[in-house]
Design a protein around this nucleic acid. Sequence first.
DNA 1: CTGAAAGCGCTAACAA
DNA 2: TTGTTAGCGCTTTCAG
Lengths: 356, 356
Amino acid sequence: MGGRAKRVTLRSVAQEAGVSLSTASLVFSGAGAVSEATAARVRAAATTVGYRGPDPVASSLRRGRSGVVAVVVEDRLLTVFRDPYAVSRLDGLASVFDEIPASMLLVSQPDGNQGAAATRLASSAFDAAVFFGCGPDAGPVLDTLRAKGVPLVAMDTPVVDDVVRVGIDERPAAAAAAAHLAELGHTRIAQVVLPCDEPAGRVRPAHDYRAERFSTPRDRMHGVADVLGDAVPTVAATASDVDAGRVAGAALLAVADPPTAIVAQSDMLALGVVLAAGERGLDVPRDLSVTGFDGITQSWWPGRLTTVEQPGAEKGREAAHLVRALLAGEAAHDVTLPTRLRVGDSTAPPRSPAPG
Amino acid sequence: MGGRAKRVTLRSVAQEAGVSLSTASLVFSGAGAVSEATAARVRAAATTVGYRGPDPVASSLRRGRSGVVAVVVEDRLLTVFRDPYAVSRLDGLASVFDEIPASMLLVSQPDGNQGAAATRLASSAFDAAVFFGCGPDAGPVLDTLRAKGVPLVAMDTPVVDDVVRVGIDERPAAAAAAAHLAELGHTRIAQVVLPCDEPAGRVRPAHDYRAERFSTPRDRMHGVADVLGDAVPTVAATASDVDAGRVAGAALLAVADPPTAIVAQSDMLALGVVLAAGERGLDVPRDLSVTGFDGITQSWWPGRLTTVEQPGAEKGREAAHLVRALLAGEAAHDVTLPTRLRVGDSTAPPRSPAPG
DNA sequence: CTGAAAGCGCTAACAA
DNA sequence: TTGTTAGCGCTTTCAG
């Protein structure tokens, strides 16, 4: 509100122009089955009375559509946007929304506060929703979204029966990174995984994470296990950022028989590991090989990370296309995008053959 | 649309519960002037018929409020979110929106395409808008917003007569950084400025930028000029990110008589300058002092940047408070937040007294 | 405490 | 091509 003046409605415009309400409406929104002369008269009248265009709310009520797509992110904005990969997905979404056209209602979940997000969603108008890689507790939000009865598209989430999904084949993608290290001759390999159920910071063999409920870290661990077995020393990060990667990397390197290679589940984590190595006087890749995941372009590390590239922006665009299809009443099917191991400067054969 | 089932309305619930429409409405939205018994009956009926709660659109139309605040960013998402400082402002906004409560409609301007943003804004429902540091061409968007007649809050924008604004005193803030370098004994000082009208990459004396229309870079240049005069070798960046800073820094350092200190207009730019220095074999701060602006916490540079701290999250929160006040019909006044020079490890006296 | 009635501003049949 | 009519689903006076 804010004490602003009473809205000028279409009715006044019609009156001023001496036409009926519906004719005036046609001039603004409908396809112009109106003579140019009348249309001009209406537009002139609109200017005269100071009409600001059809009220989107009234129009939405009548048409049954709001032109808004809700985008539900899994965390607070600060966390989400710190990861360039997450941002590229959003940017991809935004670029297609522009064409649809649709506006983007951004719903965050501060401190994983699903309740607040669910409430906000329940009382917001939107025609469809996209939600991101959620953990196992997405219940409230997902229920609210389902209750709305709007089309839903999921990105990088666990498979949900009734929701169209865009993602990648996590397991083989992660396996590719592990295989690359194995081929280089590494035998002492450790991994840093994305935040998950398990408490962060403790180094434990991968099989201790077997019951993991967050699907992304779990599936990638499985991929690594497919190649290296499930005893790989593993540590969970507190977040997917450089700092968390540094802490996790430090933990992995502070053991008696440190690894010669580390698989990280995101590029941000991998860069953190590179820093941790530097702090111990280890050179990457000479003393330590590091692989990442995502394929972001970072500019401050002089080298190029060896990483599993996944098309972030394209994922966003793809999800938006699904939204568009669903909105148009068309069928939409899950999309799995390709990934590709990009070998950069952060991996090399181990410095010396395993002692023995 | 998407072919979903016909909406269950409040009318069916009332019928099922054997109460009137208005009573049922009171149960869901109004303050409960309804006996607990009736309320329970209504709620039960709602479950029976599968009512999903009041339709936000209808409710908005009736109440005259949508519960949405538009947040208009100055660029495409990818660009905006690349700067941690920009993100912290958004996060500050989001945290207060949660309390209001309000949802956030995020409107970007791909390729500075103001037209598209304006159109989208015109056809979207929202009760207020916040917009960010815009260049001189904000016309279309600003006009659309004004036409809506909703309360407007501006962040880090040039002063606009009829819009409440939150920002900092750019000029003295920038002057503080310059003064710090001068006090350390630097005499050969250059600067990297935020993207602006002037073509990026060319090194020219500051007075060549006198007609700059982007207010943030201009005001900060004025601050530097207040201390160092207006002949400071200056280069504009293409963006506010590390890469752009590196390019700009390289340009400044590639001259016959290179500077011993560089003032950068953002931390991201400053970090890029640090990289550029490293590439020329220069140590920061021994061979080159660098100051930033914003006070982000970055984790990969081992040192702490000397920088002008400005409270990003607080700026966002402050803006959201203004929105809340305006929405409540209260008066709201411009807010200017304090800044502070934080001396870190990126500045030191020049290595040797100027040769002479 | 509950019900009846009047719209919020617009759009889309349908009729002229 | 234009006008008439009937709501979209809800909230909110105002009576009872």
